[in-house]
Design a binder for these strands. Sequence first.
DNA 1: CTGTTAGCGCCTTCAC
DNA 2: GTGAAGGCGCTAACAG
Lengths: 339, 339
Amino acid sequence: MKKKTTGHTTIKDVAEYAGVSKSTVSRYINGKIDAISPEKVKNIKKAIAELNYRPSKMAQGLKIKKSKLIGFVVADITNPFSVAAFRGVEEVCDQYGYSIMVCNTDNSPEKEREMLLKLEAHSVEGLILNATGENKDVLHAFAEQQIPTILIDRKLPDLKLDTVTTDNRRITKEILQKIYSKGYTDVALFTEPISSISPRAERAAVYQEMASAQNANGLVRMYEIDVKNKEKLKVALRSFHKEMPEQKKAILALNGLIMLKIISCMEELGLRIPQDIGIAGFDDTEWYKLIGSGITTIAQPSHDMGRTAMERVLKRIEGDKGAPQTIELEAEVIMRQSL
Amino acid sequence: MKKKTTGHTTIKDVAEYAGVSKSTVSRYINGKIDAISPEKVKNIKKAIAELNYRPSKMAQGLKIKKSKLIGFVVADITNPFSVAAFRGVEEVCDQYGYSIMVCNTDNSPEKEREMLLKLEAHSVEGLILNATGENKDVLHAFAEQQIPTILIDRKLPDLKLDTVTTDNRRITKEILQKIYSKGYTDVALFTEPISSISPRAERAAVYQEMASAQNANGLVRMYEIDVKNKEKLKVALRSFHKEMPEQKKAILALNGLIMLKIISCMEELGLRIPQDIGIAGFDDTEWYKLIGSGITTIAQPSHDMGRTAMERVLKRIEGDKGAPQTIELEAEVIMRQSL
DNA sequence: CTGTTAGCGCCTTCAC
DNA sequence: GTGAAGGCGCTAACAG
């Protein structure tokens, strides 16, 4: 009956130490306490404490087919959105005893594929995915194995999956209206490549409609920029500033990353905000209010999106077989002085 | 021999479909291909592809005692340091087929304890920990089970564990020298509660030495601030600014979070940087160069710290039994215009 | 080269 | 109330 001092303690050790069978220990672990005689309960409790026993999730999982693992796959962990969403996911995971495997795809479909396969191999019970737009086949495999998958932020139209996003169209319209109502007559959109990323596409579409109706001469000015290429961004910025100098100019930055690059380049070019060009964008950071006199932006409920997504996962795990639903959370325009 | 269309495919399914035994499939999975007749190899490959088979890590893990899981526990996922370090960890994890369970403790020892126990239950093969300073007993349990644990950023003096940090003393000294050499005569330290967090303690200690030697009247001015309490911070800021107005004043912010709060409060108080008070701090963000004319700061090699920590974990997993080592990476002062 | 056997740590009938 | 037995999906000798 002496304590082992090394290696992992198993249910067998506990059983022997407590002088009962493995079954009884198992019952104890699983809370069937009032089906065990009080004395044995006491012994088992003591054994567990002294042996420092922790039931192996792997063994439990193998048996009952529940890993207590959730996969959280983000396109860019560097994006504050990802971190905020993570915290939301985490809150509800903690509450229900789930752990989170975090994967970062860097917007690379290949990396995403690897991560998804890895998560599948690890038997995650649910998946929260900020998708690149590819790997439909793997997602299909998840569906076949009944592993609930929730899309976050980015929709995948042809894949009938639960989705949590923002009301991109409405909010984009709202901010553009505010821009135009401030007298801007030449509004440009700066964006990372849209490819098939739904929020980008939706925002761009609304911009196109509104710009062609309200920009001077109906000119739609969309600049697709590779954020790694600062020089090209500067060229774009300079050319936008130079053309039609008599118009009052503003830029709508399609996400936080490109906003950062724009501000940085404008500074280097000696372009003033908002005197030379007004700016507004998506995503909010605490830093925004400290840049110049504050950056006007759209704050997404990132944290809530994470929470909501994980709550959906939970519902599915609990057996909800309802039709996939798309949940749109409300974003909010925060007016500061950059317009 | 027909394909199952639902549920998880197991090694048994593959074996039957390919007309071989489970052992042979197992051999295939584990790369012992030249110990199998070419024809069977072909059949197995085909079966795996058609059945969409992915070996269960849980079952493998149970058998060979390798979960391919790494626990990454950070005190504050919101801190850019955590994200940068994560990416470093991730890089090497990807390379070696490990997955990462990310846990956020919010600097709460209780939450940390829960997370650690959870990770232990999941049989992580290694642990990278940005510690709160408590839970030595659980860490002890990890050691007993030979689960390599690497401390990152924050040391735990009485625990002889591998540790990856920054040369806090040297770099703090360097930046303070730069501050004093710019003619500042009244330098204050603003910090979150130091408690027993090693980088904070080390930075504060160096500050105390240098301030008592070089501040006017040898005055050491340390303000311990709860970052949640903006009012108290403002009071501190105002009082620091008012006392001895004839001295040239600067603040050293002990980390990025408190820096953010300081800048924000100074703005609200109408205090100008650096005319009224010069500032410098720790941690770097891309935003720093855009605030005013740029914030002078210390950039930590966060990403490398993550990489290095994970590399250490790997060495330990591979059997390195050497004495625990403390690896100090070099930080760097980035001078901008806030001083 | 390949199949049979015996577990890994745990849970779950099924008898007692 | 309790233990013995079987099996989750996989690997690792051990015989052929």
